[in-house]
Design a protein around this nucleic acid. Structure first.
Length: 192
DNA sequence: CTTGTGATCAAA
DNA sequence: TTGATCACAAGG
């Protein structure tokens, strides 16, 4: 039986757009009192820090965004629209508030609807108590696994308020995955 | 298209 | 203290 290796922290010590690609295909183990469940990351979005108007940290360092200023490999979990928990992996270096939103996962050892950033966290019982945790040990463990053969790129979802940043190609997904939260735009190149 | 739902932050 | 806003999902 093949035992996956822990993801090295260096994979996250870089700009969020690079880390977002690195995270595709990686496994995330989530420990509960009695169980460990594993998912494979199939869709991510990068938030690039204070100058990125779609990033919460563009409003500066506040109680809410504090965890994004932490070390790479820290979690940033928050509640949006009063009901959905968003799970992010902090990247770059301490003091530079970049993060990768995990938008969709493939559940490897259990059954659940996980195709969306609020659905998979609900299925795994993730909430704000999981904010500011180390993701390389403890309740969460990120593991190395092969990257997808083909990666789709598109603009981020739900950030229309962010001006020019709304169109930046910072959403990444595994081509062909049935777990993607929404379709990716068809690129002109695909029309041959 | 609307609605539910609550944290957050700037304004007052 | 209020009110607008929001990195969503489900239902017309």
């Amino acid at each position: 039986m093949h035992v996956p290796k822990p993801l090295p922290r260096e994979a996250l010590s870089r700009d969020a757009d690079v880390a977002a690609r690195n995270l595709l295909g990686c496994h995330l183990e989530v420990r509960d009192s009695a169980t460990v469940r594993t998912v494979r990351i199939v869709e991510t979005e990068a938030y690039l820090g204070e100058m990125d108007l779609a990033c919460h940290a563009s409003k500066g360092r506040t109680a809410r965004t504090e965890s994004m200023y932490g070390a790479p490999g820290t979690s940033y979990v928050y509640l949006v629209y009063g009901m959905h928990h968003m799970f992010n992996v902090v990247t770059s270096r301490e003091g530079d508030p970049q993060a990768v939103l995990i938008r969709a996962v493939d559940p490897l050892d259990f059954e659940a609807r996980t195709q969306g950033p609020g659905l998979w966290t609900a299925a795994m019982g993730i909430d704000v108590s999981d904010d500011r945790q180390d993701l390389l040990g403890g309740r969460f463990r990120l593991l190395q696994a092969p990257a997808p053969a083909s990666i789709l790129v598109g603009p981020r979802i739900g950030v229309d308020y962010a001006g020019a940043w709304a169109d930046a190609p910072l959403r990444f997904g595994e081509a062909g995955s049935p777990f993607l939260s929404k379709p990716f735009p068809v690129l002109p190149d695909d029309v041959t």
